[in-house]
Amino acid sequence: MENGHGTVRQLHYLPAVGSAYGVEVLSFAALRSMDVHRRRTQPQRPDFHVFALVGSGTGTHEADFHNYRLQQGSTVWIRPGTVHRWSDIDACDGPLVLFRPGFLSGLTAPEATTPACWHLDRHRLSLALLAAEHLDREHRAAAQVPRLASPALLSHLLAALILRTLPDTTASTSPTGTGSRHTEVFRAYRAAVEEHFTHWHHVADYARTLGYDVRTLTRATRATTGTGAKAFLDQRILLEAKRLLAHTDQPVSNCARRLGFRDVSNFTTFFRRQANMPPVAWRVAYGTKGTDGTVATGGV
């Protein structure tokens, strides 16, 4: 299993026949029909985006150690690399949109700040479902009649759907001026963090590589996410540490080495400071249970 997550299923983007456009529209009903063995209820880590709307019904969903209650109007956005599971969607109905990283451009700020799940009121849900239906119809037309296919059109319709659903705090973006500059800088910083966070733990390392000073990265990150560049980096390292501890039985010392810490004591200090508990306590509290009900608790 990639990334050492022995109990987490790694999902790769594999479009259906005729859907090789970087996006695919399904539904909760279609997911259930394709998953007769209910593997959706087990931890999984997609390398693509999953965007879902609950048009009716209730259920539950878990994403990176947060549990969400699903109901009519619930909106779910799973980013690539998130460890999640559809705990219970037997009664949910509505569209699911799968799309590759990079298929949707120009929404860096909302991607970074929108939670994994939020709620739409009745009026916004109605408009969002219409937008999803439009995307679905164009997607099916592209699959059935290739000469009608337009990846650019599909990308624009996907962007329209997401903009229609974004929480008010993230619904606006600045296309020009300082906001645009901050978005550009943060986009580069976030990509570099994702590539190097397992061995670069100082913002100065990223500043040198990207050609910015630390203050520029800090201003751009704070303007985009509401937190500084160092805090953003630390939270990314912490999230991966939590995933490793909860979803593998690797010793804490191995987890520390995988994340670029020279010794386990430095890792333990970092984790305790960020999570308010030591790594072993986190593993006991959140570790994935095996078939016998035990929790993976690899030693130090």
Rank of each mutant, 00 (worst) to 15 (best):
M1L: 06
V8D: 11
Q10F: 14
Q10Y: 08
Q10I: 13
L14V: 15
V17P: 10
Y21T: 08
V25K: 01
L31K: 11
L31F: 12
M34I: 02
H37D: 09
H37E: 08
H37N: 09
R40W: 01
R45P: 03
F48S: 09
F48P: 04
A52P: 04
L53G: 10
Y68T: 14
Q72S: 14
Q72H: 06
Q72C: 11
V76I: 15
W77G: 00
T82S: 06
V83H: 07
W86Q: 08
W86E: 12
W86I: 01
L107M: 14
P110L: 00
P115N: 04
R122N: 00
R124C: 03
L125T: 07
L127F: 04
A132S: 10
E138Q: 04
H139C: 10
H139E: 08
A142E: 07
P146M: 00
A152R: 14
S155Q: 09
A160H: 12
A171D: 11
S172Y: 07
T173F: 12
T176F: 00
G177L: 12
G179Q: 10
S180P: 00
E184H: 11
V185S: 04
V185F: 07
R190G: 05
A191N: 14
A191T: 15
V193A: 02
H199A: 02
R208C: 13
L210F: 07
L210W: 05
G211I: 13
D213C: 07
R215T: 09
T216N: 03
T218S: 15
R222C: 06
A223L: 07
T225Q: 02
G226R: 05
L233I: 11
L238A: 10
D249A: 13
P251H: 05
S253I: 02
R257W: 05
G260F: 09
N266E: 14
F267T: 03
F267N: 02
F270C: 12
R273K: 08
N276G: 08
M277E: 13
P278N: 10
P279M: 02
R283F: 06
K289P: 02
G293S: 06
V295D: 08
T297A: 15
